[in-house]
């Protein structure tokens, strides 16, 4: 396959919902290219049209205008039968997991294989392997209602990749989960991406989800794509209003990194834009782990924030903090849940 061809190509997609009173433009002239093996994030606030967009990718929603090309096929040209076949090569997971409640975990994972016509024995074999991979081999005969949220999502992931799809669509897959579980689910997705080369499309309203695993990101606002780019670039320098809103929104979710003390350093324009951290590292000859950074140089002054992890040595870390104080850099300890 030509790797320069996008696996999903969205061209001029517009989706209009007709309600009794009015027409709602859910998506307006969307253009996106998603390439094989990428982890592609689509972020936006609720009501931005993310869920509609991801549903256009497997034609659960038919676009009002425009085309969706999956693996070289225009989905609009396919017969229903062909479309069903294509959907077997696009896995999907959801916020509410959407497992079959009257089937065991094993039977849930077998379901897409049944639909694809895989012989029962073979299907069972594959389902067991997949459940082993997601770490649930002891739950194969349990029912979904007996599982925790994270476990349910693991089952959903195993189910979604059972038919070896080329793409996995994740619709707010971690939004119903706590931060710890979110992290483990994101790690699992990353693993799957690396191991099987499955392209992953992630829909979310949480910037930290995008940061932790996505290569590229598209920002959706009021039905339009307002910004597209590599995650680092968009993150460091968001150009759109919506991008700025998402990036500069302070939140506490970074506190789960690592086990040592984590400090948030705030650059509020008081300090000069000099390489404070690298100077500090050079001076104390001790490593500092930068967990997250988002700083900007505006007129020679530093703005933004950074999360750093100081060495375990308490005396050393105290000295480092004093060093920061001397340079009028504000910091605070980020509380750990441990």
């Amino acid at each position: 396959m030509d790797t320069n061809e996008p696996i999903i190509s969205i061209r001029g997609v517009t989706k209009i919902f007709n309600t009794k009173e009015s027409e709602v433009d859910a998506l307006i002239d969307i253009n996106l290219d998603i390439y094989q093996g990428e982890i592609y994030g689509i972020i936006g606030q609720s009501g931005a049209g993310k869920s509609t967009l991801v549903r256009c990718m497997n034609f659960l929603e038919r676009p009002t205008k425009g085309s969706v090309i999956f693996d070289g096929q225009n989905l609009a040209d396919l017969s229903l039968k062909e479309l069903l076949k294509v959907r077997q090569s696009i896995g999907m997971i959801f916020q509410q997991f959407n497992l079959l409640m009257q089937r065991t975990v094993l039977k849930n994972v077998c379901y897409p294989l049944e639909i694809a016509g895989v012989p029962k024995k073979e299907a069972k074999q594959r389902a067991i392997e997949l459940l082993e991979m997601v770490g649930l081999s002891d739950k194969i005969n349990a029912y979904p209602s007996q599982l925790s949220g994270g476990q349910k999502q693991r089952v959903a992931i195993a189910r979604a990749i059972a038919t070896k799809p080329k793409v996995l669509l994740c619709d707010e897959a971690t939004s119903a989960l706590d931060p710890m579980t979110t992290r483990s689910i994101l790690e699992l997705l990353k693993d799957i991406n690396r191991k099987f080369g499955i392209t992953i499309v992630i829909i979310t309203h949480e910037m930290n989800v995008i940061e932790s695993i996505c290569d590229k990101v598209a920002i959706l606002d009021n039905g339009r794509v307002v910004e597209v780019g590599k995650v680092e670039e968009v993150f460091v320098n968001p150009k759109s209003e919506a991008g700025k809103r998402l990036v500069f929104k302070t939140d506490e979710q970074f506190s789960e990194f690592g086990s040592e003390k984590v400090y948030r350093i705030v650059f509020d324009g008081q300090s000069a834009f000099e390489p404070i951290i690298s100077n500090m590292v050079a001076k104390f000859k001790a490593p500092v782990n930068i967990l997250f950074a988002n700083t900007k140089n505006i007129g020679g002054k530093a703005f933004g924030q950074m999360l750093i992890q100081l060495p375990e040595d308490r005396i050393l870390s105290k000295q480092m903090l004093r060093y920061l104080e001397e340079r009028s850099v504000k910091y605070e300890e980020v509380t750990q849940d441990a």
């Binding site: 497997n58 659960l60 229903l80 039968k81 069903l84 076949k85 294509v86 959907r87 077997q88 696009i90 896995g91 999907m92 959801f94 509410q96 959407n98 497992l99 079959l100 409640m101 379901y111 897409p112 049944e114 639909i115 694809a116 959903a156 189910r159 979604a160 038919t163 669509l169």
Partner: peptide, 20 residues
């Protein structure tokens, strides 16, 4: 949501009825 998930997995109408 369960119906949607089944449709996303390529389930046709008949199978949707008797399998879901």
């Amino acid at each position: 949501g369960i119906i949607e998930a089944a449709r996303a997995m390529g389930t046709g109408t008949f199978k949707l009825i008797y399998k879901v």
